[in-house]
Design a protein around this nucleic acid. Structure first.
Lengths: 231, 231
DNA sequence: TGACAAATTAACCTCAGGGTACATAAAGGT
DNA sequence: ACCTTTATGTACCCTGAGGTTAATTTGTCA
């Protein structure tokens, strides 16, 4: 397991080299894990330091204090979710297919970004105090709304979407089940069992939620997923 | 405002009387506020003590330690949400009306129970560790599922609901937007502005979400809320 | 090659905050 | 009236964790 660790430890032990970028990233990666796991007050700077390959002093050197570190972590996860959204190409698709794709992609993106979800939960506990300080995050979120707006505009123009459909409200709706599905998994399972969290049932939930969104937005869309035998 | 506070202070000052029930409730009420506001590790026992009309010593006397107090707070808010759900009489209504009523009531109940929402969020951060220890909470949650199950069964029997409709999945869906609407208000507003959180827009969101649920569950239901002019 | 800045280490400081020890007053039983 | 149990007030302890000081090494540019 430590076959190649030799070189690394040599590097760090007898004669360490400077590598500020790697150190910063190392700290951020560990801090993301820890803040996501335990929250702002719950996370422990000493533990974060131990899990990095550097020392506590470096955390303060690069990030000032605990809150500074937390802010950078927050910006990091927001940026990384934006990336996964931006990779989604939806402009080329016909409006209904585009909307379907957007909903499914959002559902999946949330399911695959538990750190993001947990940090957003934590941030909500803190009334978004740190998010509001960030100058980069508001920009990040614009792109998803623009995508939805584009789809809605084209859908209405084609006579396929209802006229009153509002991109922001639609985003609220799509986010709600995508987010809740991950954020409340623990309490939901504790209350009602884990039956909704098998791979199979998750696929069903996604399909039904997607179908449901389409049936409110798309004129004449008839939902069919519930017609399948239960479960 | 303190016209009658005189008697109370007399009671506590010169010759205090024993009143264990009131003391316990006082502590619980304050602790609910504080844990909901700051989380488990974020809440401060000294501050809780200061905000009660009793002392820190009594917290440990009645609740053992911080986690013990937190558990009781958690059970308290769950119980109080159950109450608001149980007061809802839905058995007498025709299935479609009953479902509509259930969705609207759930939306409102969540909107009016911010403490509950925040504590559930906090509990999810802790992977529902404390909720799982509770023996009373699983019982509490059964009643809402039973209500939904009753409505679904009647709806299917009347040929109005799709056959595959599943009460637990339906509950997941209804909870998702009801919960998210409150839980993520802070970050959502920070990202996209607070336009969705006016009284008027909240009513619209509730109506549209309700309409959406009905359109997936009820055969032949045509959603109309989006047809209104945007906003 | 030596001064200067940037990066890093190790040891230390401080105090907030969870938890306890001990004394004591009120109620309740007999 | 006494003893016991329950309830309460005061003062204190002490560790964990956020943050700092000061010295050391590495790189860089005259």
């Amino acid at each position: 397991m430590d076959g190649s660790g030799d070189r690394d430890s040599k590097k760090r032990k007898s004669s360490w080299r400077k590598d500020p970028v790697a150190v910063r990233e190392d700290i951020l990666a560990v801090a993301t894990q820890e803040f996501a796991a335990h929250g702002l007050s719950g996370a422990n700077i000493n533990e974060i330091a131990e899990k990095t390959s550097t020392s506590k002093r470096m955390i303060y050197y690069y990030f000032g204090d605990k809150e500074g570190l937390y802010c950078k972590v927050l910006e990091g996860v927001y940026a990384s979710l934006r990336n996964s959204e931006d990779r989604l190409d939806v402009e080329g698709l016909e409006p209904v297919a585009a909307l379907r794709r957007l909903v499914e992609a959002t559902f999946d993106a949330h399911a695959n970004a538990p750190h993001f979800i947990r940090l957003v939960m934590i941030e909500n506990i803190h009334n978004a105090d740190y998010l509001r300080k960030s100058r980069i995050v508001p920009k990040l979120n614009r792109s998803i709304i623009e995508k939805l707006d584009d789809v809605c505009t084209r859908g209405k123009a084609a006579g396929k979407f209802r006229q009153g459909v509002d991109p922001l409200q639609l985003h609220w709706l799509i986010s709600s089940f995508s987010f809740y599905n991950v954020s409340n998994r623990a309490t939901f399972s504790a209350s009602f069992g884990a039956s909704l969290y098998t791979k199979k049932t998750q696929a069903i939930l996604k399909a039904r939620a997607t179908d449901m969104v389409l049936s409110t937005v798309v004129i004449g869309h008839v939902p069919t997923t519930w017609d399948a035998p239960a479960g």
